[in-house]
Amino acid sequence: MAEIIDLVLLGMLAITAFNIIFIKDLFTVVMLFGIYSFLSALIFVNLDAVDVAFTEAAVGAGISTVLMLGTLALTGRKEKASSHKTILPLLVVCVTGAALIYGTLDMPLFGDPDNPAHQHVAPRYIEDSPQEIGIPNMVTSVLASYRAFDTLGETAVVFAAAIGVLSLLGLPKRDRATIQSGLKSHLVLRVVAKMIIPLIVLFALYVQFHGDYGPGGGFQAGVIAAAALILYALVFGLPMATHVVPPRVLKALAALGVLIYAGTGVVSLFLSANFLDYSVLAEDPVAGQHIGIIAIELGVGITVFAAMLCIFYAFAGQTERKNIQ
């Protein structure tokens, strides 16, 4: 039964991917990208990787769709016809693809229990993490403690992306735009948005602090909280949103999150342990791990929230400027 579901989902994934390649209407393509992300989230659920599915649904289908739509508002929805010769690139792609497929022939079979990953790393985490880290969600203990350095890198990447967008587009000024924007005529939308936005923020906090016990954590929580404010900005207008969360504060928050994360590592350094080894943060090593994981998840959440909202502000500010002119 699971195989049939997997096959159907993978087939739909392939159809969506081909449509994305061939359709010239960029608005449709963005929507198809959202569908693609949801389909891959379903596949991840089917593989029992709930944390990954959650991230894929929140980041891939949620926030990146909104950001791409924001870009489309600036660039227009038609793809330009390319005048390049397509033979040589096609050849390069075919050769590279063939080389990659040839490379996978040496890899162990998918789902083979004798894979190297299932021989020492996975058993080590599964057997020792309940005693060493002591939190029910093993994914979080791998992500936030054993592989904390990787996650620090990911957080820094999100931060760098926000900096890149800001240096290209710049943030909107807080009280410069006086133009009436937002959806004034959509009364139903405004009422429902008012009802839902607090619930979304509450859910984001739940995801943030429940990440030790179930699927969730800083990445998802930050994206969900940013989605709440983006909804607010879309319905009530960008000036209102920048009034609630000023861009100046966002810049500070984005840096603060990375600072909290790296600072936790430095604190553990000063307590004569390795960088990001949380066991020394409290008397009891397990309690120290809990404190460390909560601290760095908070850092991740703050940075992701601020970075996503910064990027949205930058795009929306450009659109608003274009509308004024």
């Binding site: 959509h186 009802m195 619930l199």
Partner: peptide
């Protein structure tokens, strides 16, 4: 509850925007 709030709202917004 969430679906019953959001899904009709989305359809309403879609239809209203098309009308406008």
């Amino acid at each position: 509850i969430f679906m019953l709030l959001t899904s009709p709202t989305a359809s309403h917004a879609l239809a209203k925007s098309a009308r406008h």
